[in-house]
Design a protein around this nucleic acid. Sequence first.
RNA 1: CGGGACGUAGCGCAGCCUGGCUAGCGCAUCUGGUUUGGGACCAGAGGGUCGCAGGUUCGAAUCCUGCCGUCCCGACCA
Length: 495
Amino acid sequence: MFDGIMAEKITPRAQDFSQWYQDIVLQARLADYSPVKGCMVIRANGYSIWEKIQQDLDRRIKKSGASNYYFPMFIPESFLKKEAEHVEGFAPELAIVTHAGGKKLEEPLVVRPTSETIINSMFAKWIQSYRDLPLMINQWANVVRWEMRTRLFLRTTEFLWQEGHTCHATAEEAEAETRTMLGVYRDFAEEMLAMPVYFGLKSDNERFAGALRTYCIEGMMQDKKALQAGTSHNLSTNFAKAFETKFLDKDSTQKLVHQTSWGVSTRLIGGMIMTHSDDKGLVLPPRLARTHVVIVPVTPKPDTKAAVLEAARKLKAAIEADATVKALPYEIGVQVDDDDTKQAGWKFHEHELVGTPVRIEIGPRDLEKGTAVFTRRDVGQKEFIPMADLPAKIGGELAKMQKELLEKARAFRDANTTEVASYDEFKSKIEGGGFFVASWCGNSELEKKIKEETKATIRCIRLDDKFEPVRSGKPCFMTGEKSEKNVVAIFARAY
RNA sequence: CGGGACGUAGCGCAGCCUGGCUAGCGCAUCUGGUUUGGGACCAGAGGGUCGCAGGUUCGAAUCCUGCCGUCCCGACCA
């Protein structure tokens, strides 16, 4: 894990976590800064991770019943103004087009910061009867939010995401959908990104602008700060009221639809990096890798070079054909790095930097013994393995690595999650970072005070299996008052 | 928008305080040779409006003023 002393050749500057993170993004060629401040250029290495995310998450979303649509990126300004809380929440960060075609526009167009409004304008047309419900759509798109402060992947002016929007006949259905999607995100984060998350309910201060309730998943980064990795909102009838999205129910009365929206973004990539990477570079969970295995032929002498290369290529074929490997829930990439302008040592460092999960070395001495050197990126330990056993071992180790990355991150998070009984205790410990679990009375003013004094916020209110807030049964850590309404909340400093 | 730091070759930097020979160093690039089991070595070569504009001065990368840009910290946030 990160300990702040990145190898000098990679970066002499990485003294703090934030710089270390940006260096990994840049050095591993995941993304770069763009000429427009705050926007990010995603490069091949980074985009292939996004494709893996898209592919898997899209499957899960469709399984939940939603279909993919595409809506325009321009939204008439008046649409945003229809929902009071929504426009108030987003107004400061909107990019607005006032001129086009050489003329001043009669009505300015907002570049979407999210699509609730434009989608609702269509929902209102499409929905007439209870037979049209539920209507569940999803969109993969770019959105623009003019944030003051940006950071590669974590908060960029323009970012890629997936936003789901659903309409239901009843409040119960909408609430159930909100929870279902939160579960989809949680499973996805843990299974694909190997990023353990707490899930819970946002406080009123942190709620989405226009929502009744906002659920979220929260991960812990290696500097012990929290990262909101996904949100799922129960919008109730707030947007339906504003856009008159109504349906004729079985009882022949007009009713407003109950809606949800939910999304995750390219921020997930940042979260994944900050969860797993170390001072050598990126550590990529196998499920997100494009190249899973790199075979480095070590060819010190010309007379053995051909034999070594042949063995490397045979091994590649054997790995690809192996039953254990084929049993993995994803296709694996095997690369023979036979570039002879680079030395073996250089290649080792390069593949560690970009996070290739497994490295195999084959040289003349291995050929004599019938072995090869196996090294897992996250473990870093060299093992001499008989050539014949390698393919099956690789299949097994990739599965194991995926699992162990999650376990390691979870152990780290749990070790840095502390229960606090009083505000004084909290204040004395917050400087060290981490998650703090406390009994909480729910007072918004106190929440603001905590933020001002400690920079920490409520990441979420814990929920039980039935998605009911967990009752602490203890006095509030701020007021000291005991109430049945006191809940269990997680506090932390966040990105 | 507030506080701080910075801007010199493709990248990373030194030089500036205390003005003065032809503006340096590392990496990268190119050429030749030797190498190759953890980022090779030797020899040579190319590459600069010193962020921009103005001022002070015999003389400015260096001092002064203004502007532009970048990064870090805060407020904001997926």
